[in-house]
Amino acid sequence: MNPRIRIFVGAYGSGKTEVALNYTFLLCSRGERVAIADLDIVNPYFRSRELADALTSQGVHVLAPEGELATADLPVIVPGVKGYLQNPDFSVVLDVGGDDAGSLALSRFAPVIAGLDHEMLMVVNNHRPWTGGRDGITAAIRSIEKGSRLRVSGMVSNPNLGEETTPDIVERGHAVIRDTARALNIPVVFLSIMAGVVDGNLQDLPYIDRGVEVLELRRRLLPPWYEQPLRMAPQRDQWSRIMLQEVRDRETSSDQIDHRPS
């Protein structure tokens, strides 16, 4: 049975918001009444409030600053979060800002949350700076626990290199994160994998322990050029040529040389 309140914390850029959004849509698809609270007071970009319309249309209650304040770099937490936390009719997802600085926003609710059925999950991508191995991940967990005044009770293994994620990156990264979780004596609750990266039935992957649920991610926060997804990084595009222009004595446009040797 899932805990009613799931809190997603993690280092900056670990994938908290993408995981929280995908998890929220998953709960919706199961017919649950869901509220998501955007507690990110640190970073004014790529926050779950950007999906407010899509979430609302699915019946999700979105607790995030609206109007002008939605795009402000002000530490705003809207009223009502506590009410939803205490409302037994709602599953609540908390999308928390990065690092200990972000988790400070959570500490205001710690006394309430501590007495309720909850789980605080640390989202980890081992391909991010500072959290590449056991020491870095452990240090990040401890600082977030200190900031939030709550204990991390499980992990979300989110090993990825964005568009360049391969099955191998997922498997090797997951091993690093799983070993860290074991050393800390906490479970890996989810392994999140971008849709399309690994073929076949994800739940049957040989390296997944019992009890780990695979969360298939659909990226929700995309830059505009992905409107029609381009799989290739633009620099490696076969049509592109990067050049140093030789203006001096240049006669034809074919007289172009390649990118400055590094």
Partner: peptide, 9 residues
Amino acid sequence: REEVRFETF
């Protein structure tokens, strides 16, 4: 003369 850089697509 020496540092101009650009990409054509």
